[in-house]
């Protein structure tokens, strides 16, 4: 039972990184400048590294599984990433906003885990990830400001992205069963306690970026329970293509 709970908790950590990394991977070679391409790929590589650490540990909870089984061979409703990270790369404003909304959360989470987690392996994973997350957040915040307070067009595009992605932010703070278990075991934080600080940070930055905080009080959730948006199936079709087409082979 405990193995199963720990496994589920590791999925929740790894899936966010996997799916966001997958999205960033789509951009490679198509960004607004070589320099931003290199930066976004760096973030994708960091996230992929976090994914692998989580899934290697997760696979040890289930006999005979590998990190790739965990990453590639689940059904859509078994992926527990939040809906935010699967949202598509509509334009660079979406990419940056999605990243920023995620980075603020991820940094809080990794800071907590690296300082407090009762699970030494998770603590070690977070210890490495916290530095990465700090850099990611810095990168995405800087770009939020540039787009928000740049040209009229960039301001409008950022506004649209913030409006569109805002409803996906609250899901972070509604614990899944696995996250509630982790909190009770001292392995993970009580996510509800992050909420106020998260919105304080985000709202302060939006103000600096001259973008009004959306007033929309309706939020979306379900990703943590495996209920995803329509985008997810296509993302998984790419991600799983090889493993599904050529099952049980070594690559």
């Amino acid at each position: 039972m405990e193995h199963q709970s720990l496994y589920q908790y590791l999925l929740s950590l790894g899936d966010n990184a996997l799916i966001l990394g997958q999205r960033l991977g789509e951009l490679c070679g198509h960004g607004p400048s070589l320099e931003t391409d290199i930066a976004c790929t760096n973030i994708a590589l960091d996230l992929l590294g976090q994914t692998r650490s989580c899934f290697q540990y997760a696979s040890k909870q289930l006999d005979g599984k590998t990190e790739d089984d965990v990453a590639f061979l689940r059904k859509e409703n078994e992926y527990t990433n939040v809906l935010l990270v699967e949202q598509p790369n509509n334009d660079f404003a979406f990419v940056i906003t999605r990243q920023y909304f995620f980075d603020v959360y991820q940094l809080m989470l990794m800071e907590w885990l690296s300082a407090n987690s009762a699970d030494e392996t998770i603590k070690a994973i977070a210890n490495k990830a916290v530095k990465e997350a700090r850099y990611h957040r810095r990168f995405s915040s800087d770009w939020m400001l540039r787009l928000g307070d740049g040209t009229e067009e960039s301001h409008q595009r950022l506004l649209d992205a913030v409006e569109a992605l805002w409803p996906y932010t609250q899901e972070f703070f509604v614990p899944s069963e696995a996250e509630a278990w982790a909190a009770s075991a001292g392995i993970g934080p009580d996510l509800t306690s992050f909420k106020a600080a998260y919105y304080n940070d985000v709202e302060a930055l939006l103000e600096q970026a001259t973008v009004p905080v959306p007033e929309n009080p309706y939020f979306q959730k379900g990703g943590k329970q495996g209920r995803h948006t329509e985008h997810m199936g296509y993302l998984l079709a790419d991600l799983q293509y090889m493993q599904r087409t050529y099952p049980n082979m070594t690559w």
Binding site: E35, I38, A39, R138, F139, D142, R146
Partner: peptide, 11 residues
């Protein structure tokens, strides 16, 4: 300059 520093780090 901020972007230059970040890009330099990445590149």
């Amino acid at each position: 300059a901020t972007m230059a520093l970040e890009n330099a780090r990445d590149v």
